[in-house]
Design a protein around this nucleic acid. Structure first.
Lengths: 209, 209
DNA sequence: CTCTATCTGTGAAATTTTTCACAGATAGTG
DNA sequence: CACTATCTGTGAAAAATTTCACAGATAGAG
């Protein structure tokens, strides 16, 4: 039916959505495309173009109404039905993610944790149910988990991804320092630190115009 | 002199560089653009186009020589001189990053850690020198730190960024759930989890073509 | 209601990025 | 050396994305 929303637009709108969340907390009722540019760095005309692709929204002399814009983005991307997550690998990084309050605040729930070290899991103090890694496919399906966060050592990243996919996962957020590119059309976000540092480093090295 | 390398190309080449590192560890001496496509998902012709922008590289019937290609990318982006990092915020997430072996393996050094909680820092067991946050500008300059990793609570993210910038930082990797967009032309990579989840969620919701 | 100041919405132009297709390069074989 | 199979390198075409510029919408003031 409607036209496809381009990927760069999706990325920018997610960023805008984050900003709107903050503005809402601060009880700021309206926001102009110029204000959004100031906070996010996205040019005002691009912001307007992006928003215009979502359908119509009333806007006045003071720009968009924060609420309305949030609702519009949220409906477009189905944010009202938050995805269910699981996390694989519960060493320091994995535990830090598991215990982070960020997720709860944003409305996401981690429905399960997995680790190959059963002793470690027995020691952990958390509300999230924990299982050994060989149960991934089964539990992922059983708990209808939508996506997995991978925080295992690099040599286990690929097989972990395969187990998750066997369970019917739709997306992966990968913290392991290995580029993952599974066969099926699973969406993968590789966000490991060394990769980001390299990218930052490359951007700094080439930025002098 | 030479033409500018487009940003999407930089991102892809960093991904390729990661892959090459792995191939090198596995003693794989050559790699074709088709093989790179298979591992990274980047189309082969795009890989070739990207590489061709870096200058000339000898290639044979079996594709590129892994070593040569790594060297070419590494020289283009000045990877031989690794940037010096610092990390601000040493709660669970910050500590996990500080203790990660990933960084050392990739050749990066964290030259300093900062936290506002002095007691916490006294309890920590690490080789990295730790300082209170108010010393950020001073120490960043003194230790010629190139970029900062921000892992502080959201309400402190902005002021932390400002302190880092005052110290003359060139880039920021931001783990705090706040979109940062400093005035100066500092390069910022926002990689906090809830943002990535939202993006993943939006991509999943819109992917059905 | 009219005037004014401030924003958005959007087709069209400009620019950037990706894709294509095939000439040219390389190495192995007899 | 000639033949072959396998890749790369790259100008040109195609597609996608961003930028622009200005008409139209809104709300407050007189």
């Amino acid at each position: 039916m409607g036209k496809q929303i381009p990927e760069p637009t999706i990325e920018r709108l997610c960023k805008v959505y984050s900003l709107l969340g903050r503005l809402k907390d601060e009880d700021i009722a309206t926001v102009s495309s110029a204000a959004i540019e100031k906070e996010t760095g996205i040019p005002a005309h691009t912001v307007r173009k992006d928003i215009s692709q979502l359908g119509s929204i009333k806007s006045g002399k003071e720009g968009y109404r924060t609420d309305d814009l949030m609702k519009l983005i949220s409906m477009t991307f189905s944010f009202e039905i938050p995805l269910r997550a699981c996390i694989v690998g519960l060493d320091m990084m994995g535990s830090a993610i598991l215990n982070s309050t960020q997720l709860k605040i944003a409305g996401y729930e981690i429905a399960a944790g997995f680790d190959s070290n059963i002793n470690r899991m027995e020691m952990m103090n958390t509300d999230v149910p924990l299982y050994p890694t060989y149960e991934i496919p089964e539990k992922v399906r059983e708990l209808s988990i939508d996506f997995g966060i991978i925080a295992v050592p690099p040599e286990k990243a690929k097989e972990t991804a395969e187990k998750l996919i066997k369970g019917g996962i739709k997306g992966i957020i990968n913290y392991s320092p290995v580029i993952l590119n599974p066969e099926n059309n699973i969406i993968v976000r590789n966000i490991y630190l060394t990769e980001e540092i390299r990218l930052l480093s490359a951007l700094i090295a080439t930025e002098d115009k």
